[in-house]
Write a protein that binds this DNA or RNA. Structure first.
Length: 295
DNA sequence: GGGCAGGTCTAAG
DNA sequence: CTTAGACCTGCC
């Protein structure tokens, strides 16, 4: 990627970067800890740091950070190495994707922390985004490390596997995660004990990694693919949630196509960039409400 | 109040 | 292997 970097005043400014729109990035369903501020910037937590991201003209302003953290953390987190141009062009050969890519042109897939992604997406099952977000905030506030104040608000890191593994299931339910509490507890214990090793799973190929992830209680096909895509760099994963199901059926397939068939269709059609296709389709379907139909 | 939301589990053909 | 029901919770 070609762009200019400037540092100063607790900020890093990226000038001339392409394919980077905070709204698209933080509202395309991949993350839960980024919140819009009054000035349309986003503040969020990752890697035990609070960051604010603002788009201004052709600049991206990262506040509450420095060049060292940019180089060590945010460059990778925002996947700035990747040139989205080629992949977008490839996807745009399909007429539907062409529109979806145009609509979500500033989407980037974040490289998130595997444990946080595992727990967050276990919580996401049969749940709504605002409630997922508030549960994760409660979880972080109660069991995560305090990392400081930004603009008058306190921020907490996502809890570690060790911290979560020690919490009683009934107490976990106070974060309003309901029946998912036992899954969260079980996952934390398995990771903390070393019975399951996320770093190890990350090194496997997509199918093997998916199989391993689905050994976690509360992790099925959709959640596993989200973890693969959003925290393990498996861009051939194609998570199918209700929105993607609707839009795929609406444009490519018949109504009531089984998840298996849609998954296979998506993977075969989009191959090694299926995950990117999924993000553009999800954002397109959700924001426009297309493909929405009554049961 | 019943339905539903970014699925998964369980039990059963 | 495919399919129906139940499921915490909060907002319509």
């Amino acid at each position: 990627m070609k762009y200019n970097i400037m540092e100063g005043n607790n900020k890093v400014i990226i000038e001339g970067i392409k394919d980077f729109d905070p709204v698209h990035i933080f509202e395309c369903g991949q993350c839960f800890r980024w919140n819009k501020e009054d000035d349309n910037s986003f503040t969020g937590v990752a890697f035990e740091r609070v960051l604010n991201v603002k788009s201004e003209d052709d600049k991206i302003i990262l506040s509450n950070t420095n060049l060292e953290d940019f180089n060590n953390i945010w460059y990778n987190y925002f996947d700035l190495e990747r040139d989205y141009g080629e992949m977008k062009e490839e996807l745009s050969e399909d007429e539907i994707l062409k529109e979806a890519v145009k609509f979500g042109s500033g989407i980037r897939i974040l490289k998130q922390e595997p444990f946080e992604t595992l727990i967050s997406f276990i919580i996401s099952a049969n749940n709504a985004i605002p409630r997922i977000k508030s549960s994760i905030e409660r979880l972080s506030k109660r069991y995560g490390k305090y990392i400081g104040e930004y603009n008058g608000k306190d921020y907490y890191a996502f809890p570690t596997a060790g911290a979560l593994s020690k919490v009683d299931v009934e107490e976990l339910k106070e974060t309003k995660i309901g029946f998912r509490a036992k899954y969260v507890s079980n996952a934390a214990k398995r990771v903390f004990s070393g019975e399951a090793d996320l770093n190890d799973i990350k090194t496997l190929d997509t199918d093997e990694a998916r199989e391993k992830l689905m050994e976690f209680q509360g992790v099925g096909p959709k959640v596993s693919d989200c973890i693969l895509l959003f925290s393990m760099g498996k861009y051939d994963a194609f998570p199918i949630d209700v929105w993607v199901k609707r839009i795929m059926e609406y444009f490519y397939l018949e109504e009531d196509t089984s998840m298996k068939k849609i998954q296979r269709f998506g993977e075969e059609k989009f191959k090694d960039v299926a995950g990117f296709a999924q993000q553009y389709l999800f954002y397109y379907a959700r924001e426009l409400g297309i493909g929405k139909k009554k049961k």
